[in-house]
C-alpha cells in the first residue's frame, strides 16, 4: 500500500513538474566553449539575482540539434559553438519556429601541436604536419601510403624521432578545426594532390594515418597532456587553454615560424586558430528570466575584455574594435541576417 502511494506521489510530481515554467537559463553545445560559458554562468549566478545557468557539453552539432528543436521551456536558450552555424542548421531552426537567432562571437581559440618541455621545441610548416599525419602522401609524383616513420624522413631539419601524435577523435570540434586549418591547407601546396579529382582529393587531404603515427586519444585533453609528459617523443593536438595551464610541462611547436602564444593568436599571426560563438534564441529573451542580463555579463569588459576572467581561462579576446561591434550587437540582441528573411 505504501509502495503504491509512493509511486502515485511520484507520478503526480512528475506531471506537475513538466507543466511548471523554467527560471533557469539552459545552455548546450560545444565542449570547447564550455569552460568559458560556465565561467560566465558562475559569475552571473554569484550576483544572486538569478539562478546559475545550467551548461551542458553536447558538442557543437549536438547543441544545434537541441537548440533548433523548437521554442518553449523544453528547449535550450543558448548554444555554444566552436564554428559558425551552418546554413542547414539555420534551416532546421527556421523549420521548428526558431527564426530569430543572435550570433555572438566571444573570442578565438588556438589549436596547438605541443610536446614535452624536456624535448626540443620544433618548428613545423603546415605542409610538414600534413605529410607527417596524412594516410596517403605524394612521393615522387605518386600518391602512396604514408612512408614516413621519423620526422626527419620528411625534412632533415626536423628531429630524428618517431612520428607519434596524439589527437582528438573525429567527434571533436577540435579535430574538425585541425583538419580544416592544417590538413586541408597543408595538402593544397602539393601539385600531385591538386591534380586529383575532387572526391579523391578530399579523401587524401583529410584522412589521418592509422598505422600508429596518429593516435586518437579520446576527448579528454588532460589525458593527452599526461601522456606527453610521460613520452618525450610524442606530440599532442589540443586547445590553447591546456597549453596555457601546463606551461611548466609542455611547449607549443612553432607553426610556419609562429609560436602559439596569447599575443600571436590574438593578432592572427598564428595560423591555427578559430573563432568561438554563442547563439541566443531571441524568442526566449523576456520569457526565461535573466537572458538579457546573462548576455550583458558574458560580453562585459570584465569577462570578454583583454584582462577579463575569460582570458584567464584561456580564451583569446577579440580585438578592441571587433569587441565593440560584438558587444553592441549582443546587448541589443540583433538577430542574424538569414537567407530566409
Amino acid at each position: 500500500m505504501k509502495q503504491t502511494l509512493a509511486i502515485a506521489a511520484l507520478a503526480t510530481l512528475a506531471f506537475a513538474a513538466s507543466a511548471e515554467a523554467r527560471d533557469q537559463i539552459r545552455v548546450v553545445g560545444s565542449s570547447t566553449v564550455y569552460p568559458f560559458t560556465t565561467a560566465a554562468a558562475e559569475r552571473f549566478g554569484q550576483s544572486g539575482e538569478f539562478p546559475t545557468p545550467v551548461v551542458e557539453s553536447t558538442g557543437t552539432g549536438g547543441g544545434f540539434k537541441l537548440f533548433c528543436a523548437g521554442v518553449g521551456v523544453d528547449h535550450p536558450d543558448l548554444s555554444n559553438a566552436s564554428r559558425a552555424i551552418k546554413p542547414s542548421e539555420v534551416e532546421m531552426c527556421a523549420k521548428n519556429g526558431v527564426d530569430e537567432i543572435t550570433e555572438i562571437k566571444v573570442g578565438y581559440d588556438g589549436i596547438v601541436l605541443a610536446n614535452s618541455k624536456q624535448a626540443e621545441q620544433v618548428e613545423f610548416t603546415v605542409e610538414q604536419i600534413w605529410q607527417g599525419l596524412a594516410k596517403e602522401v605524394p612521393v615522387d609524383g605518386e600518391i602512396v601510403p604514408n612512408p614516413y616513420r621519423n620526422w626527419s624522413d620528411i625534412d632533415p631539419s626536423l628531429p630524428d624521432t618517431k612520428i607519434e601524435v596524439l589527437g582528438p577523435p573525429p567527434t571533436s570540434g577540435t579535430r574538425d578545426a585541425f583538419v580544416e586549418l592544417v590538413m586541408e591547407v597543408g595538402c593544397e601546396s602539393f601539385p600531385e594532390v591538386e591534380a586529383l579529382d575532387e572526391d579523391r582529393m578530399e579523401q587524401v587531404c583529410k584522412t589521418m594515418r592509422e598505422d600508429g603515427g596518429f593516435v586518437e586519444a579520446g576527448e579528454n585533453d588532460n589525458l593527452i597532456v599526461q601522456k606527453l609528459d610521460a613520452n618525450k617523443a610524442a606530440y599532442g593536438i589540443f586547445g590553447f587553454s591546456f597549453l596555457d595551464q601546463n606551461a611548466d610541462k609542455l611547449q607549443g611547436s612553432l607553426v610556419s615560424g609562429v609560436e602559439p602564444t596569447y599575443e600571436n593568436i590574438a593578432d592572427g599571426s598564428y595560423p591555427v586558430s578559430r573563432p568561438l560563438f554563442i547563439y541566443v534564441k531571441n524568442a526566449h529573451a523576456g520569457v526565461i528570466p535573466g537572458i538579457q542580463e546573462f548576455i550583458d555579463e558574458y560580453t562585459s569588459e570584465r569577462a570578454m575584455g583583454e584582462d577579463g576572467y575569460l582570458a584567464d581561462k584561456g580564451l583569446i579576446a577579440l580585438p578592441e574594435e571587433e569587441y565593440e561591434q560584438v558587444r553592441e550587437k549582443a546587448t541589443s540582441l540583433t538577430p542574424m541576417a538569414t537567407a530566409s528573411n
Binding site: L10, E20, G45, P51, T52, V54, V55, E56
Partner: peptide, 17 residues
Amino acid sequence: IGMVAFIVDIPSGFTDA
C-alpha cells in the same frame, strides 16, 4: 538526459537540474 552539465546551484527537489 542532460545530467552531464555544469550545475552550480544545489538541487532542492526532484525536478531541479
